[in-house]
Design a protein around this nucleic acid. Structure first.
Length: 386
DNA sequence: CGATCCCGCCAGGTC
DNA sequence: GACCTGGCGGGATCG
């Protein structure tokens, strides 16, 4: 509030359009998805991207939950890249990732590590971070921690992805997703609030996922309600990230979901002055941004294609190694079975059943073509969400 | 006016 | 007590 007025330099033309999480995410990826990058320092990222730290947490949490990053230590993450996504999805399927993102990713980093440099010793004084990573047993955690985790962005992301993967009803509406991810309903007023809160989080998550081209936002054909569709590798942009274009460059000037510009200059200037004192660790160079833009260009030319999703990932040399480990095409039957939440509310149960039916009809259509697919889904398997 | 989602407060955890 | 992390919801902006 107070800070808004302080920006004399920020002429009235403040536009939220230019600061979306999706765009920030795209820039983040551009910055770190390079062969020579293996660690991510949050401070560094915040400065380079010209945003406050809090925003970095948002995208990092989402990306961590799908395996793109893994936490290494306080303030430090290991960049795994998009090849981490299929692994994480596989773990989700196996249920080894059910604990919450932290533990799941510990596993994923472990799997990835022999291929990816990982341990180039980030662990000097890692007790904080390592400690957290090591706690994979929820029983060892205090309840409040577990509860908090349960509502975490990362967990929500995983559940959202599971939902998209398991339903395959083409699209999942925002409302439905919020309801399903919320579990069951108790008192309506509480539900309304909780739902609203969850929807806000879903927007955050969806912005990130869509900028990674894992999902796209559409509308349900009948109701015109906003909805999401899982893309996986079917994403239009092979490079993995949706390249953010200035609004004018977009058709009819319409803003596209998850593709907005970050107000880098303003933020950066602000951050620079405020972080000045500890800037010995990272200096902001104008070429960082240029680098970032170059990376985007590179991606546009497909020089380094990202790979994600369980579907037939194209290979780049480095990814092949990893792929051998993930080479089984995900078994959606067991995946879905193990992931399906249990719903106490009849309405939610019906809703989910609807998605299951849609999946099954889809399955029937394609089953002939794929030997990896097994049987259609059966109802009333449940996992609950904790 | 509903949809979207930025922003930053502040609680909880760690050191 | 400083710092890190991240849940959360107010309220601004968009369509």
């Amino acid at each position: 509030m107070a800070e808004k007025s302080e920006s004399g330099s920020r002429h009235h033309a403040y536009s939220r359009k230019q600061k979306s999480l999706g765009l920030l995410c795209a820039n983040f990826v551009s910055l770190y998805n390079k062969d020579d990058v293996d660690t991510v320092c949050l401070d560094d990222a915040a400065i380079k991207l010209g945003v406050e730290r809090r925003r970095i947490y948002d995208i990092v949490n989402v990306m961590e939950s799908i395996g793109v990053l893994t936490r290494k230590a306080k303030n430090r993450y290991l960049w795994i890249g998009f090849k981490g996504i299929p692994i994480t999805l596989e773990q989700l399927k196996e249920g080894t990732a059910k604990e919450h993102n932290v533990s799941s990713l510990e596993c994923s980093s472990a799997k990835v590590s022999d291929d990816e440099d990982d341990d180039k010793s980030l662990d000097h004084n890692d007790d904080y971070g390592e400690g957290r990573l090591c706690i994979t047993d929820t029983a060892a955690k205090p309840k409040c921690v577990a509860e908090r985790k349960e509502k975490s962005l990362g967990q929500l992301t995983q559940n959202f992805v599971k939902l998209l993967l398991t339903t395959n009803a083409d699209t999942v509406s925002l409302d439905d997703a919020a309801k399903l991810l919320l579990g069951d309903g108790q008192n309506p007023a509480y539900m309304r609030n909780a739902n609203a809160a969850k929807v806000r989080r879903l927007y955050d998550i969806a912005n990130v996922l869509s900028s990674l081209n894992l999902i796209e936002k559409t509308h349900q054909s009948d109701t015109r309600k906003p909805a999401f569709r899982w893309l996986g590798t079917k994403g239009k942009c092979e490079n993995g990230v949706t390249i953010a274009l200035p609004p004018v460059a977009q058709k009819s000037g319409k803003r596209m979901f998850g593709t907005e510009l970050t107000n880098v200059e303003v933020k950066r200037a602000k951050l620079l002055s405020s972080i000045d004192n500890k800037s010995n660790k990272t200096q902001v160079l104008s070429h960082d941004l240029k680098e970032c833009n170059k990376a985007v260009q590179r991606q546009l030319q497909g020089s380094k294609s990202f790979v994600f999703g369980p579907f037939n990932p194209p290979k780049t040399p480095k990814e092949e190694v990893i792929e051998q480990k993930v080479e089984n095409v995900p078994d959606f039957e067991s995946f879905a079975s193990s992931l399906r939440p249990s719903y106490h509310s009849q309405a939610l149960h019906d809703l989910f059943s609807h998605y299951m039916e849609a999946y099954n009809s889809w399955f029937a259509e394609i089953a002939g073509g794929s030997s990896n697919l097994q049987q259609p889904l059966k109802k009333s398997v449940h996992i609950g969400h904790s």
